[in-house]
Design a binder for these strands. Structure first.
Lengths: 232, 232
DNA sequence: CGCGTCATTGACATCTGTCAACCAGCGTGG
DNA sequence: CCACGCTGGTTGACAGATGTCAATGACGCG
């Protein structure tokens, strides 16, 4: 086992790590190797924080394995789940491109390994391979869009509608079967769609009574009537 | 008057137009000229749409003079004001970097002129001057942050708190005096902070009764107690 | 001067958050 | 192997916040 190597170049299976990352996966092998030499790997146990709000980080963090929970605390101390990062997704761009501090907390939801690349290293890469910026721009712009959509939903749709939309979106990626598995605890789900666990429970019950869904277990739900779910 | 020139190169006062744009203003004169030759100018009257949701645009639109109202319609047809673009700010990045259609509507709030640059032109510029990507990345990443913050407020703060924060933010930029001028109609303001015009009226009244603000006219408000406004 | 648009106010219904109790699943330790 | 306790989920009762609808008021423009 090349343990030192693991620590410093992300993973023994280099290709496996970096080539999965959307913003790099268009590079050729040689360029990829260059990227991999600049990347650092780090692992976190469940519950550990990758960074704090208030940290002035200067690294871009890309999830390699596992998942990160990004959340904010409001002035009043309430927690809002912003989004969940899965392998290939990244965070830290605010602190990276601006002289600012993190506004979010990033917490490992399970055993998670990430690749990190510092500001100066990334900027050097961006100048050398402008195509990487295009990828990041792509990713960021669609994130702006998603976040705006999320924000718009809070103000234009009812809790019930937001929950229903969320279920249908889960189905989308997973669309082999009509059974979705909630990837979050009820508490996180509630926070994500802007409500409380109690209300989530109640609304799921209502949706079931309307024959739109069927609760299999507390985290498995069968989507019975996708169309009408969106029509609430 | 070089009218043709106006149409095709944004404005007779070239420097005035493009050099104000944050994403270009680090370039030297020669580079700036190059940018200006690729930029197209267009004008809109109050109420005209620069683009529709559903358009597949391939231009980046930068506000030159005036202002644009970006909004979305929810499935149920309700309108959500996403943000207002002032001179120097841009939109269209989603359609530009992804093969997607606009999700927002962009409407001129007054007589407004914009500069537009097509996808292929911009991409060429980005490759030639990678520093421009850095600027755009900066702008987009801080926009992600702002939008996440906005979304978090919808779920963690009360309408009253959101309104109060909004007033204080207005004061921030304007901080000569303690009187702010609402730049939006009550309807737009309400939509922006996720409520209704009626509730805005009522909450302003409450804030006045608490001696935190004083309503001068329907669009002018004196901030009496900035600190306690944030402590609601 | 009067009309139309926007803002304000009131009365009311409803949604959803809060608090508290209860229930279910699961791991630990006896 | 069972019992216990912990955590997370569900349910109920209730109050408060906010949206809706309708009426009234203020302002600006023709």
């Amino acid at each position: 086992m090349t343990e030192m190597n693991q620590k410093h170049t992300c993973n023994t299976s280099h290709k496996g790590c970096v080539s999965l990352v959307p913003i790099f996966n268009h590079l050729d092998t040689e360029q990829m190797n260059e990227v991999m030499e600049t990347v650092q790997s780090q692992s976190f146990k469940k519950g550990e924080l990758v960074y704090h709000a208030g940290d002035k980080s200067d690294v871009l963090t890309i999830v390699n394995k596992g998942s990160l929970r990004l959340y904010r605390l409001s002035e009043s101390g309430k927690e809002q789940l912003v989004r969940v990062l899965r392998p290939g997704e990244f965070t830290g761009e605010l602190a990276l491109f601006n002289e600012k501090v993190h506004e979010n907390y990033a917490e490992a939801m399970e055993a998670t390994s990430v690749c990190q690349i510092t500001r100066s290293q990334l900027q050097a890469l961006l100048v050398k391979y402008p195509s990487i910026s295009l990828k990041i721009l792509q990713e960021l712009s669609s994130r702006v869009d998603q976040t705006e959509q999320q924000a718009a939903r809070f103000t234009t749709e009812s809790t019930e509608q937001r929950l229903a939309s969320y279920l249908v979106e889960l189905l989308g990626s997973d669309s082999q079967s009509d059974i979705v598995t909630l990837p979050l605890t009820k508490k996180d789900l509630a926070s994500y769609i802007g409500t409380t666990p109690e209300t989530v429970s109640r609304k799921l019950k209502e949706l079931e009574e309307l024959n739109l869904i069927k609760r299999i277990s507390s985290s498995k739900i069968k989507i019975v009537d996708e169309d009408n779910l969106l029509f609430l």
